[in-house]
Amino acid sequence: MYFLQANINNSATTVLLFGTVGMLVLTIGLIVFIVFHQRKVIRYQLQLQRMEQDQQKVLLNASIRLQEEERQRIAADLHDDAGPLLATARLYLNENLVNLDKTTQLQSIYNAKQIIDDTIQLIRNISHSLMPPTLKNFGLESAVNDLFQKISSSGSMNASCRFHDYRDRMHPEQELIIFRVIQELVNNILKHSNASFIHLTQNLSGEKLYIRMHHDGRGLTQNDFEKLNKSASGLGLKNIQSRLKLLHGRIFFEKDLSQTYFKVTIEVPKEDGVHVK
């Protein structure tokens, strides 16, 4: 009985000592693991944050450069076209003050009027390129239709578009951003793809608006897009991405399953209510 009691006590002591040491080792191990793992997680998160900041910086630079290019273009249009036209009109009108001959005066007024008309047309064109009136007054569908008709009528490419479900207009600012993205994509296709046709379709699925463009020229895949996005070139693509980011939208580039067409899909949440200022 004494031995049995002694054995029980001894085993209890052993379990107590080993158990306590074991628990202590486990606890210290757990705490060390937590400390190191948390540092690793934080380091990873910081790295992600830094990468995101870098990407933001690239996008911001791209958008600033694009804005500057746009300003330079407008400045050049005004300086090279509108400036000389107005100066010529001024010369004609000045001639009236010197030349008192009625016929010559009428002729110079007529010429000045012609030049002023040309200038008005020029300024209208500049203004339309900044904000297409069709887009403002009739919406995205009409503006895209207009753009595609202009491309088709130029004869260089067959362009068609079809809006399947666009009964309710989006917010004008959202429409403008989507229109600019489409313009940029079309511009890229015209410049680089050597395609014979572009076809655009619009669909709604759930709360998302999808715009798909097909063309049969040389195009981009998602990998190409991501590579160009990270490189210093590809200003237009960066601009597309920064515009879509404002709408919380996404863009996908892919080659059709038949390997004949390239497809670009723009996905934009419809009821996001993004107000871009």
């Binding site: 006590n9 209890a12 379990v15 107590l16 202590l24």
Partner: peptide, 28 residues
Amino acid sequence: TGILVYLAGTFFIFIYSANLTQAQLDTY
């Protein structure tokens, strides 16, 4: 950490306190 170390370290002594003699209990 303090709570965890304390509870882990004293876990077995509390469980086994009923199975130990008074002398062992005094020691441990």
